Amino acid sequence: GFHDLKREIEPSIEGVPEAGWALASVAHGQGLASEVVGRIVAWGDAVFGRARTVCIIDPENGASLKVAERNGYREILRTTYHDKPTILLERRAGGATA
């Protein structure tokens, strides 16, 4: 779903709806994440309109990066979160990025 965790991250994403997902390992590789995230972003498009949404993903999490990209998220920069490399991705309604 979407949340605003008020993360201490640069650049700040406070106030921007942040998408997040996690699946039990037994559900990995079945296409469920792409389907669920697709429904999440469709709901977000309806609720947030053309507003930007973001997600952060560990650069080593290739599966989540693919799910994000399939659902219109595009990398905008690499940063750190909790002293670990992190990719910040963004999406606009309809999958367009700024």
Rank of each mutant, 00 (worst) to 15 (best):
residue 66 K to C: 09
residue 94 G to R: 00
residue 27 A to E: 15
residue 43 W to I: 00
residue 37 V to W: 04
residue 52 R to H: 13
residue 81 Y to M: 13
residue 19 A to N: 02
residue 60 E to W: 06
residue 58 D to L: 01
residue 38 G to T: 13
residue 78 R to G: 13
residue 22 A to M: 02
residue 49 G to D: 11
residue 36 V to D: 09
residue 62 G to L: 12
residue 20 G to Q: 00
residue 56 I to M: 01
residue 58 D to M: 11
residue 53 T to F: 12
residue 49 G to V: 08
residue 82 H to W: 10
residue 46 A to N: 09
residue 15 G to R: 01
residue 18 E to H: 11
residue 14 E to K: 11
residue 90 E to K: 02
residue 97 T to G: 11
residue 96 A to H: 07
residue 74 R to G: 15
residue 14 E to S: 05
residue 73 Y to W: 04
residue 92 R to N: 14
residue 57 I to Y: 07
residue 6 K to T: 14
residue 47 V to L: 10
residue 12 S to F: 07
residue 94 G to Y: 09
residue 34 S to H: 13
residue 40 I to M: 12
residue 59 P to D: 13
residue 1 G to W: 08
residue 55 C to W: 08
residue 67 V to E: 07
residue 83 D to H: 15
residue 37 V to S: 04
residue 9 I to R: 03
residue 29 G to K: 11
residue 64 S to N: 14
residue 45 D to I: 02
residue 59 P to V: 12
residue 86 T to K: 00
residue 13 I to Y: 06
residue 26 V to N: 15
residue 90 E to S: 04
residue 64 S to W: 00
residue 14 E to L: 00
residue 13 I to T: 11
residue 53 T to N: 02
residue 43 W to L: 12
residue 94 G to C: 05
residue 68 A to L: 01
residue 93 A to L: 03
residue 10 E to P: 00
residue 56 I to L: 04
residue 82 H to D: 11
residue 70 R to M: 00
residue 65 L to C: 09
residue 14 E to M: 01
residue 73 Y to H: 09
residue 66 K to G: 14
residue 66 K to I: 04
residue 39 R to C: 09
residue 42 A to L: 06
residue 42 A to R: 14
residue 12 S to L: 01
residue 22 A to T: 14
residue 77 L to H: 13
residue 30 Q to R: 11
residue 30 Q to D: 02
residue 38 G to A: 11
residue 71 N to D: 08
residue 18 E to T: 04
residue 92 R to F: 10
residue 49 G to C: 09
residue 42 A to F: 07
residue 53 T to S: 07
residue 84 K to Q: 06
residue 88 L to E: 03
residue 92 R to M: 11
residue 47 V to R: 15
residue 7 R to I: 03
residue 26 V to S: 15
residue 24 A to E: 12
residue 77 L to G: 07
residue 98 A to P: 15
residue 17 P to S: 01
residue 13 I to A: 14
residue 89 L to W: 08
residue 95 G to M: 01
residue 81 Y to F: 07
residue 32 L to D: 14
residue 29 G to C: 08
residue 70 R to P: 04
residue 28 H to S: 10
residue 54 V to I: 02
residue 38 G to Y: 05
residue 67 V to W: 15
residue 95 G to Y: 11
residue 64 S to L: 00
residue 67 V to K: 15
residue 51 A to D: 12
residue 39 R to L: 02
residue 72 G to P: 11
residue 1 G to C: 02
residue 52 R to P: 02
residue 87 I to Q: 08
residue 47 V to C: 09
residue 48 F to M: 02
residue 25 S to D: 14
residue 59 P to R: 07
residue 19 A to V: 04
residue 65 L to I: 13
residue 58 D to Q: 03
residue 23 L to M: 05
residue 80 T to I: 02
residue 96 A to N: 08
residue 16 V to K: 01
